[in-house]
Amino acid sequence: MSTDQAARTGAKVEILTLDIGGDLSEPARVRAWARAELRDFTEADLTDTILVLDELVSNAVRHGKPPRQVRLLRRPGRLRIEVDDSGKAPAIPRQPSETGGRGLALIDACATAWGQDHDEHGKTVWAELAQA
């Protein structure tokens, strides 16, 4: 559900944003930020959330282009993670190898839905998770 759709249905949406750089240490900073912001999550929900968030951010840092931003859109019982970058190449699952290829499969296993949106500025790769 996009933020506009949530607003039309009357669902309260809390949006948390963080700009991310291109350094390979950025996923650790984003994980720490998310843990602090989502301290009311159960441990099980937080574990899945951090895994999905880490994969999306890592992909944006490795394969995307600046600027990059992560958003957490919270509404009762749901969390949507969105990661923007200005790269035009779509996120495509690939065969696992010793150099990677497992991220989108992990996201698919943990999320209730995931996908990507493209526009003239780049792309947003997103995932939605149910919360207890």
Rank of each mutant, 00 (worst) to 15 (best):
I81A: 03
T124P: 02
L38F: 00
Q69D: 11
W114T: 01
R80K: 14
R74H: 07
E37A: 15
R80N: 11
A91N: 07
I20A: 05
H121G: 09
R31P: 00
A32E: 12
P93K: 11
G22W: 04
D117E: 15
L129F: 07
G22M: 07
R39T: 11
E43Y: 08
L18E: 05
L106F: 01
T112R: 03
G64T: 04
G103Y: 05
T9R: 13
G22R: 01
P93L: 09
H63D: 07
R68K: 12
G115R: 02
L51Q: 10
W114C: 03
R31D: 09
A32L: 11
R71P: 00
R8L: 15
A89L: 15
Q5R: 14
T42M: 07
R102L: 06
R62L: 15
S25Y: 11
G115Y: 06
A7W: 10
T9N: 13
A11Y: 01
D84I: 02
R74Y: 08
I50H: 09
R94P: 02
L53M: 10
G22N: 14
L53G: 01
E120N: 11
G100N: 14
L106W: 00
I50K: 10
V70M: 05
L79Y: 02
D119E: 11
A109I: 04
K65A: 15
T42A: 14
D48L: 05
